[in-house]
């Protein structure tokens, strides 16, 4: 990652923004002086304890594994389904109603049914979380496929690109904004749903730990795990998604 002027300004802006949030929180906590709102320093101390004991890396790692598996499943499955529905009208007519039903199904229902049908297993949790996101990814990619430039498709056929070359060089770049949109909203949704799945049916992970902290009325613990998870998600966004998006859009900036 280059660290030029604009990148440095972006980083500085983010540090200032997060610092402002922490300062407001600290002031509110000092004024409230309550068990229900610990200070930033108390939460950071708790975070340090959890890291030192190895509990946080263990539970965070397990949750991230579930997020990664569910994210990959929902993105690949949703993209394949969306592209198929956008390409074949009859298939779309057949499955359009299913998509609308699934996209509006509450996450809790899918999780509970998955645990009942597949057992209280790791894969039941992952499949349930993936199924929560898959329909909206499919809908986004269906719209993207419908918006593909027919003139470029004709060019690819005229130059006998073949299926893989057409997909890679002509179709995929046009679908990238839709894939990025699905990735962003996917990550945001999946990590929330994973925590619910962990509370309901797993004995490890950040969701499980938050449930334990809730039982003990340990607000500092809840916030410590939440901050750790939020930092990971922000890191993914800043280190992976945004640079990738800038790389894919560099041709737009070249004019």
């Amino acid at each position: 990652m280059s660290f030029d002027g604009p990148a440095r300004a972006r980083l500085l802006g983010r540090i200032v923004s997060l610092g402002l949030l922490a300062a407001l929180w600290q002031i509110a906590a000092l004024l409230a002086h309550s068990r229900t709102l610990p200070t930033v320093t108390a939460v950071l101390a708790r975070l340090d304890e959890e890291i030192a004991s190895g509990a946080l890396p263990h539970h965070l790692g397990i949750t991230l594994f579930r997020v990664a598996c569910a994210f990959a499943l929902s993105l690949l499955g949703g993209a394949a389904l969306g592209i198929a529905l956008g390409s074949w009208r009859r298939l779309d007519l057949l499955f359009d109603g299913w998509l609308i039903a699934f996209v509006n199904l509450p996450a809790l229902v899918i999780i509970v049914l998955a645990y009942i049908w597949l057992g209280m297993t790791e894969w039941a949790a992952i499949v349930a979380v993936a199924l929560n996101k898959l329909p909206s990814t499919a809908i986004l990619l269906r719209e993207g496929t419908r918006a593909l430039d027919p003139q470029l498709a004709l060019m690819a056929r005229a130059f006998r690109f073949g299926r893989w070359k057409s997909f890679r060089h002509v179709m995929l770049p046009q679908l990238t904004p839709y894939l990025l949109g699905a990735s962003r909203s996917g990550l945001a949704l999946i990590w929330k749903v994973v925590l619910v799945a962990e509370i309901l049916g797993r004995s490890d992970g950040v969701g499980f730990q938050i449930e334990v902290c809730f039982q003990l009325f340990d607000v500092a613990g809840i916030l410590a795990y939440t901050i750790a998870f939020a930092l990971v998600v922000l890191g993914l966004e800043w280190i992976l998604l945004q640079p990738f998006e800038r790389h894919m859009n560099r041709w737009r900036l070249a004019s």
Binding site: F159, P173, M248
Partner: peptide, 24 residues
């Protein structure tokens, strides 16, 4: 072996000029 020149240039906007040519 045929090759087309369309009314619309139909270049891939995300590929450089040389890459567009190389793909053919």
């Amino acid at each position: 072996r045929t090759a087309w020149v369309f009314q619309e240039p139909s270049l891939l906007p995300w590929r450089s000029v040389a890459d567009n040519i190389a793909l053919a």
